Computed example of a mutant assay.
Amino acid sequence: MDQQTQQPLEPRMEEGKALVIAGVQGRYSKATVGDIPQLWDVFDSCFKEINKRVGGFTYGVCHNPKHDEFDYLAGVEVPAKGDVPSNFEFIEIPAHHYAVFAHYGPVQALPQTYERIMFEWLPHSGYAIAGSDFERYSADFDVSKGIGTVEVWLPVAPE
């Protein structure tokens, strides 16, 4: 077994505040999810243009699912949507109750963490998904190596 499958899948529960995330966005499917790192490369090359950043985290937000596809926004938190430069996309995430999962190992293994959350934890949790999930990358995350602290924030509500 690799390190990822050996880790217990035990989330911490957290009340998340409302967020405005500004960045670059693309549309993906299960077949094209491997292209998300290129989106992060684009974001990494231009995010300094977002002058009003909040905190030291970056975010990967999965939203707008339709027909086995979804939008993915690589971004940073900003104080308000008025603080988003015109050449960037943004998403407003309302305050939610979250199940927060630590991801261990390289970012390339993140799809396996999502599969474990959706197929192992969620069906037995007593919760249902209640909005758009996101990944939160800490300041120690090394984009070039794909390693560092990553958490999956899944908005949940009791079933």
Score class of each variant (00 low, 15 high):
Gly148Ile: 06
Tyr137His: 04
Ile21Trp: 03
Ser144Met: 13
Asn64Ile: 02
Tyr59Thr: 02
Gly55His: 11
Gly34Asn: 10
His97Lys: 15
Thr32Gln: 03
Ile93Leu: 11
Gly75Ser: 07
His63Ser: 08
Lys66Leu: 10
Leu9Arg: 00
Tyr114Arg: 07
Pro65Leu: 04
Lys48Asn: 13
Ser29Leu: 04
Arg53Ile: 15
Gln112Asp: 14
Pro79Leu: 07
Cys62Ile: 11
Leu19Trp: 00
Glu10Ile: 14
Glu49Phe: 15
Ala128Gly: 09
Asp2His: 10
Ala139Asp: 14
Ala130Glu: 08
Gly126Ser: 04
Gly56Thr: 15
Asp140Gly: 04
Val33Phe: 08
Cys46Phe: 12
Ala22Glu: 03
Asp83Glu: 10
Gln7Ala: 13
Lys81Ser: 15
Phe88Ala: 03
Phe141Ala: 02
Val156His: 10
Asp71Met: 09
Glu135Cys: 01
Ser29Asn: 07
Ile50Asp: 06
Lys81His: 13
Leu19Tyr: 04
Asn87Ile: 00
Glu135Ile: 01
Gly82His: 02
Val24Arg: 11
Asp133Arg: 07
Ala99His: 08
Val76Gly: 07
Val78Asp: 11
Tyr127Pro: 07
Phe134Lys: 05
Ile93Cys: 00
Ala109Lys: 11
Ala130Gly: 05
Lys48Ser: 15
Thr113Asn: 10
Gln25Ser: 14
Met118Pro: 09
Val100Asn: 05
Tyr98Arg: 08
Arg53Val: 15
Asp2Pro: 13
Arg136Val: 03
Lys52Tyr: 08
Ala102Asp: 15
Glu92Ile: 09
Gly34Gln: 05
Asp35Met: 15
Ser125Ile: 05
Asp133Thr: 01
Glu159Gln: 14
Pro111Ala: 06
His96Val: 08
Phe43Asn: 06
Leu122Gly: 05
Ser138Glu: 15
Asp44Pro: 08
Ala139Thr: 14
Arg116Leu: 03
Tyr127Gly: 12
Glu159Met: 13
Phe134Tyr: 11
Val150Gly: 01
Ala102Lys: 15
